[in-house]
Design a protein around this nucleic acid. Structure first.
Lengths: 163, 163
DNA sequence: TGTTGACCTAAACTAATGTTAAGGTTCTAT
DNA sequence: ATAGAACCTTAACATTAGTTTAGGTCAACA
């Protein structure tokens, strides 16, 4: 309808939205945040270079791995804005993000295994339970983080709950 | 010190904070959200039953698995507030949460594997790349979700990026 | 008794990730 | 030429998970 057959170099925001699956508002948002960039027409409408689709695809993949937008933008900031990333670019980004993913998966797997062990063990019982004092949280957590001080005798009573 | 040796039944908010590693403000927040409950002294200060520590421990474990507070509160709402959860309670909760965890781990693992396959493949190239159109996102995503319409010839050019 | 630390409430603020609304402009098709 | 779709900007709103601030009260120790 009208546009068919036209191989236009630049995409309007609506076209990017349709083709990327993002909402127009999200595209605006990403642009405000500096993750993507556009040029303007005489009438002040955005025009995106074709490479935007690949760039957006990368953003979406990274988001799925749990990386915050700011960090994605940071990683992406090495790439020229109006050019699709090269294979090398992508290789570098994706292998780094895969490492992040690996780490997160490992953490969750550890948690799951502990959860598995603790199911039905009547556990959560203070000093023994790995779930209650995961060693990896001690160093990195916020101001409230410290060893759980749960060694009082009254904390060790059975889990029947009758106080 | 003064308190040493006193086996007091109830804990002040500060004691709960110290022993759980939560900030006082977070404890207030959880109470406002209905995840925990307290009684008050004559002077209107909160007093928590001992079981609060176990309840808080459960909340923290669930949070680590990525479950939102609202849902945790929901799951916890079956448990009496002034009583520590029984083994059965815990068994039910933890096995359900472990299932959630399992699912999330599986998703991330899938993503990682796809990322692994795509590294260095010059991929992200539209219709072939599993990363760009993960089938599991089609049904569940928000209003903007749709099949990526990325089949135009110009999207298939090599990744060297020179437009 | 006085001061200090712990506690109280309510409201505002933060940060991330966007969406929605309001009011106005431009583009495209007929 | 004009209607309607698509676009523009700015600002406010939404959600999650809290923290911070302000102003005041309570409790415990010397």
């Amino acid at each position: 309808m009208g546009k068919s057959g036209v191989l236009h170099r630049y995409l309007s925001v609506g076209e990017v939205a349709k083709r990327s699956g993002l909402a127009v508002s999200a595209i605006h948002f990403y642009e405000r945040k500096g993750l993507i960039a556009s040029i303007r027409t005489d009438g002040n409408q955005r025009r995106f270079p074709r490479g935007i689709l690949r760039r957006v695809a990368i953003i979406k993949v990274a988001q799925r791995t749990g990386i915050p937008l700011a960090e994605i933008g940071n990683a992406l900031s090495g790439l020229p804005n109006n050019r699709a990333p090269t294979t090398q670019d992508w290789e570098k980004l994706s292998s780094r993000w895969r490492d992040d993913l690996d780490a997160r998966i490992e953490q969750l797997t550890l948690l799951r295994d502990q959860l598995g062990k603790c199911i039905g063990c009547g556990c959560l019982s203070i000093s023994d339970c790995p779930l209650r004092n995961p060693s990896d949280e001690l160093a990195t957590d916020g101001p409230g983080a410290r060893l759980l001080e749960l060694d009082d005798p009254q904390d060790h009573e059975p889990l029947d709950g009758t106080s």
